[in-house]
């Protein structure tokens, strides 16, 4: 017998074709991932470019006044466009939604992960995810035909009766009215059911599932050792839960940001309940409009050039403010991240 041939351990056992394909696959996967990233940037840039191009005429004609005025008059010849009222509507409804949805979602997630017995946690979890799958137009119709009348006759009526005569802090006045006071101003005008509050509430319901689902997932990541550690020191259930929430704060914050993004961008459901007027009011019972809302309402029938361009300007404003809020959230996130 001749002396045994020694094959390189690297080469052994792999036929050249396999090696070739493996290399191709690697490169293909890397290429595709990079392609995806480039495409995403490309699409974002493209959207930005298209909106900027479309809005160019309005930017030239309206300029900065777009951000400082709140009249929206698209009648040909009258043409006055200001985004302020819509920006205000977006901000107020999103704020209401976050203020209500974040604590509620955390409660829900804590219930699912830390309170409910196994047989209940599963179905509740499923239900929450089901809520996320309901199309927004369904929420809108439900909001308009069920929630809004109920709000008007019950909740808002109750709130109105409770707050209308409480006058703590003077906050200026509505045109043509006496001085308004906080918190009585919040219910100025009386219950209507189609207002900022309704818009905020429908958004609350819509962003609840996503914040709950993510918070639940991050809470499940809370390490068993830390849980045991806290209990071992004599912590109560609530103290341990607080520790878990602190531990998961970055994830929960991220969930809230996602919820916020959805709230800012939501169209149909809000449009069905917010009352659709271009006015700014400190009353929660006043009708309003959001940036996304005016877009879905009027874009299709924007029938003359400056009107269409102003719509594009609204879209551009929406895009930029969404980017800015996300950026701000990112900065904040880095600050609360554990050392």
């Amino acid at each position: 017998m001749s002396e045994p041939t020694i094959r390189s351990p690297i080469a052994s056992g792999s036929n050249p074709w396999h090696r070739f394909f493996r290399g191709v696959l690697d490169r293909l996967t890397i290429g595709m991932s990079m392609g995806g990233v480039i495409m995403m940037f490309g699409i974002l840039l493209l959207i930005f470019a298209v909106l900027l191009n479309g809005a160019w005429m309005a930017i030239g004609h309206i300029g900065w006044k777009f951000f400082t005025t709140s009249t929206w008059n698209p009648v040909p010849g009258m043409d006055k466009y200001g985004v302020l009222a819509f920006a205000y509507g977006t901000a107020v409804t999103t704020l209401i939604a976050l203020l209500l949805a974040v604590p509620l979602s955390i409660g829900c997630a804590v219930f699912i992960t830390r309170i409910a017995p196994q047989w209940l946690a599963g179905p509740v979890s499923f239900l929450v995810e089901l809520l996320a799958a309901i199309p927004s137009v369904v929420y809108g119709l439900w909001g308009a035909f069920v929630m809004s009348p109920w709000l008007q006759t019950h909740f808002e009526m109750w709130m109105w009766k409770a707050l209308r005569n409480i006058k703590w802090i003077p906050v200026g006045h509505y045109p043509g009215h006496r001085t308004e006071y906080f918190p009585a101003n919040l219910v100025h005008g009386g219950p209507s059911g189609s207002d900022f509050l309704a818009g905020g509430l429908i958004l609350t319901i819509m962003i609840l599932p996503i914040i709950t689902a993510i918070t639940r997932d991050v809470l499940q990541q809370f390490p068993e050792e830390l849980e045991q550690g806290a209990y071992g020191l004599g912590a109560t259930w609530w103290q341990t839960t607080r520790l878990a929430l602190t531990y998961c704060r970055v994830g929960i914050f991220g969930a809230a940001v996602l919820g916020m993004a959805r709230a800012i961008g939501e169209t149909m459901a809000v449009v069905m309940v917010i009352g659709n007027t271009d006015r700014i009011s400190s009353s929660l019972f006043a009708g309003g409009q959001t940036m996304a809302g005016v877009f879905v309402n009027e874009f299709l029938e924007a029938d003359h050039p400056i009107y269409l361009s102003a719509m594009m300007y609204v879209a551009l404003t929406l895009l930029v403010s969404a980017l800015l809020t996300n950026l701000a959230a990112r900065v904040l996130l880095n600050r609360i991240a554990p050392a």
Binding site: E225, L226, Q228, G229, A230, Y231, G232, G234, P338
Partner: peptide, 30 residues
């Protein structure tokens, strides 16, 4: 109260993701 009076140390070190000071202060605070 029982667990306060019978401290426990676990297999795997399990400090909380807080500062050194806060870790020791935690049982005091609770």
């Amino acid at each position: 109260e029982l667990r306060k009076r019978t401290g426990m140390v676990f297999q795997k070190p399990n400090p909380f993701p807080k500062s050194i000071h806060e870790n020791v202060a935690y049982p005091l605070r609770i």
